[in-house]
Amino acid sequence: MEGDCLSCIKYLMFIFNFLIFLGGSFLLGVGVWVLVDPMGFREIVAANPLLFTGVYIILAMGAMLFLLGFLGCCGAIRENKCLLLFFFMLILVIFLAELAAAILAFIFREHLTREKFTRDLKRHYQGHNNTDVFTSTWNALMTTFDCCGVNSPEDFEESLFRLLSPDKMVPGVCCQGNGHPGDAVDDLSRDECQKGSMELRYNKGCYSAVVDYFETYIYMAGALAIVVLTIELFAMVFAMCLFRGIDQ
């Protein structure tokens, strides 16, 4: 009976570690995609030190989970006590780090994210400079989501954009209909819009627009994080049970 129980724990641990292996592969894929993204999203990330650091943290966590999943599978199948103990200690550290990161991300999600994006927009956005990747990426974002600024059009006050274009309150992409085929804004309306007409511009910030659009995916990401933490917890339990069951 004990042999059957040990065998069951061994294969359950193999399954859980295979899931950890897949989770690590997914995080590696996300990190690599952000770094090589041809659409220019990486430029916004690169301009934000917090997000830029976060990408490399994701890559590091993905690599560690990838390695730990592999070690856990090998330790379970071969019933190697050294690999199992090494696996348990490392995954405990990762589990605590992920839990701490999740708590900090939840606590500071509003203040840090909005503040950093707004600061980056004020410092780096130029208006219609198509040669600047940061600017062209923000233009594409505001055109796609019919939004203006991070929080609102007021984000462009005391910004690099206003220094370069002192006669304009907002860039042309903030004007309603601009950038949509067959619905272009005429020059007079765009001029009124850029000089401050609230009726002719998009007054919703891009932060809220993007969060609303990806709300479902955000909840899915949160649920996935909970699942990953649960899998890691079970993997640690199975590793210790298997470690104690070997040679008994």
Rank of each mutant, 00 (worst) to 15 (best):
M1Y: 15
E2Y: 14
L6W: 07
S7I: 12
S7M: 13
I9V: 15
L12P: 07
F14W: 14
I15V: 12
F16D: 08
L19Q: 06
I20Y: 09
G24D: 13
S25M: 13
S25G: 15
F26C: 08
F26V: 09
L27H: 10
V30H: 10
V32E: 02
V32Y: 01
P38I: 14
M39R: 15
R42K: 09
I44K: 01
L50Q: 02
F52G: 00
V55G: 02
M61K: 03
G62L: 09
L65C: 09
G69P: 10
L71P: 01
G72H: 08
C73S: 02
G75W: 03
G75F: 08
E79F: 00
C82S: 09
M89C: 15
L90N: 11
I91V: 15
L92A: 13
V93S: 10
V93T: 14
A105Q: 09
E110W: 04
E115Q: 05
F117C: 00
R123S: 06
D132C: 08
T137S: 11
W138K: 03
M142E: 05
F145A: 11
F145L: 06
C147P: 09
C148W: 03
C148S: 07
S159H: 01
S165P: 01
P166A: 09
V170R: 07
V173Y: 10
Q176R: 15
G177R: 05
G179S: 02
V185S: 06
D187L: 12
S189P: 00
D191E: 06
D191R: 00
E192H: 03
E192C: 00
K195F: 03
K195R: 12
E199C: 00
A209K: 03
A209W: 03
V211R: 07
T216D: 11
Y217V: 11
I218A: 05
M220A: 10
A223M: 13
A223R: 11
L224R: 07
A225V: 13
A225W: 08
V228M: 15
M236A: 09
F238K: 04
M240W: 12
F243P: 08
R244M: 11
